[in-house]
Design a protein around this nucleic acid. Structure first.
Length: 419
RNA sequence: GGAGAGGUGGCCGAGUGGUCGAAGGCAACCGAUUGCUAAUCGGUUAAGGGGUCACAAGCUCCUUCCAGGGUUCGAAUCCCUGCCUCUCCGCCA
């Protein structure tokens, strides 16, 4: 986590970024509070010094069988005062820590105030004049069953059936194989739940608390992205420079409450509370992180190129960046049925923001510093499924499976006869 | 779920009330030396927060031996609670 020194040194830019990222905090209040903290700290330190010194003398006196009662009564008085001041100090420190926990990451200088299209729409297909939506396709082909899902759980959950279920599994396996075999990732299959500290470390907490599912007995959070478990694998570690970069790739189900979403934004698979995602996480030397960001983007795009899905890439403006991100690219893919561009991947450099919170360091040339962390979806499946179904539909309303997926699905089409 | 053992610095590991921020080893860094890779010798190496000061170096003080409470003039060391790890038993996909 940031410390007050860093905050005071970067006050102007932190104030700006805090406003841009939609957090409202009173910096003056806390820089003032920090002054109080310093005064109190000095006073407490002085009292402790006195206590330590006198306690030591008591030890010596007792050892030599001399009377220590005068010192002891002084110490009694000291102790009372110390306990009072320590309590005050703790309260102030707690308030300051809470305040710091709400300060988002700084933004990289290359980030603009409006979205920038980094890669123009690529790979758009010719389709029937009125392409069907994934909902129409999925229900008529019997591969998507939203009413069962809502009966079992509630609205905005999904259920894949038959070839739909297999296709979903095929997508996950295809992506994991791609990243592990071609991009040098270590595959990880992590827990789907994580504790509060882990959620804090990657920056989900405190800001996104309302969007998370929490188990009431154990206080565990259902992870909203595999970024959380994958990044926390290395929390509290000191790495050596030759171990870097470390590249983890993992599949998890992701859970998001999506409070406040409704209507056509959430139709079908557009926005669901539980979805599957393959995630890429990188730990790199600080000086390498922006090269790594570009590389990570390419790795994620490879999924779409191989599947031949139309995509474009947007560099997010600063007021769209997540709490922890310094720079983010969003990959969007086109879904002709719903006629929309859908975000399937967010590729971000967090610089040392998560590393500071999670305490992930590297020792190089005798010095210890924080690593930089990055992540990218590689990619999320529901929207990939939407785009795949809608782009690969035939004029008969059936689905032709992309060639690269056939080894994973064991079928080449999803047609109307088979349930 | 029941019974026991344990959690110490980058890593391993000693330490049961004051002389312990912590022996020893490993690793790393700096220097010396050796005609190669390497070996040997000497030194250095935790983090955070104050003060002094140039937001430097240096000096100095405080805190930190899983976390939180407690006992005590004084706690890594004693007590309580929690978390985690290991062993045994039970239960279970």
């Amino acid at each position: 986590m940031y410390n007050m020194k860093f905050i005071e040194e970067n006050l102007t830019s932190l104030k700006e970024v805090t406003k841009n990222k939609g957090v409202d905090i009173d910096f003056e209040l806390f820089t003032g509070l920090n002054e109080k903290r310093k005064t109190l700290q000095s006073s407490v330190d002085e009292l402790r010094r006195e206590r330590n010194e006198k306690s030591k003398k008591v030890g010596e006196l007792k050892k030599n069988k001399k009377d220590a009662s005068k010192l002891l009564s002084e110490l009694e008085f000291l102790k009372e005062k110390l306990i009072r001041e320590e309590k005050d100090l703790k309260e102030i420190q707690q308030a300051i820590d809470d305040f710091i926990s709400w300060i988002p990451n700084l933004v990289h200088s290359s980030v603009k105030n409006k979205p920038v299209e980094i890669i123009k729409p690529t790979g758009l297909k010719k389709l029937p004049s009125k392409p069907l939506t994934h909902i129409e396709l999925g229900e008529s082909l019997g591969i998507l069953d939203f009413s069962s899902a809502s009966k079992i759980t509630g609205s905005n959950f999904s259920l894949y059936k038959g070839k739909g279920a297999k296709l979903e599994r095929a997508l996950i396996n295809f992506m994991l194989d791609l990243h592990t075999k071609r991009h040098g990732y270590t595959e990880v299959f992590p827990p789907f739940l994580a504790n509060e500290q882990s959620m804090f470390n990657t920056g989900q907490l405190p800001k996104m608390k309302e969007d998370m599912y929490i188990t009431d007995k154990d206080g565990l959070y259902l992870n909203p992205t595999a970024e959380v478990p994958l990044t926390n694998i290395l929390s509290d570690k000191v790495l050596t420079a030759d171990e870097l970069p470390i590249k983890y790739c993992g599949y998890t189900a992701c859970f998001r409450r999506e409070a406040g979403s409704y209507g056509k934004e959430t139709k079908g698979l557009l926005r669901v509370h539980q979805f599957n995602k393959v995630e890429l996480v990188n730990f790199v030397m600080p000086e390498d992180s922006y090269d790594a960001l570009e590389r990570l983007l390419k790795e994620a795009l490879e999924v779409l190129k191989l599947l031949d899905i139309p995509y474009k890439v947007i560099q997010l403006p600063y007021d769209d960046l997540s709490f922890a991100s310094a720079k983010t690219y969003d990959i969007e893919i086109f879904a002709p049925g719903v006629d929309r561009w859908l975000e399937v991947s967010s590729v971000s450099n967090f610089e040392d923001f998560q590393a500071k919170r999670a305490n992930i360091r590297v020792k190089a040339e005798g010095k210890t510093k924080y690593v930089h962390t990055l992540n990218g979806s590689g990619v999320a499946t529901p929207r990939l499924m939407i785009s795949l179904l809608e782009n690969y539909q035939t004029k008969e309303g059936e689905i032709k499976i992309p060639d690269v997926l056939v080894p994973y699905t064991d079928f080449e089409t999803i047609d109307l006869n088979i349930k």
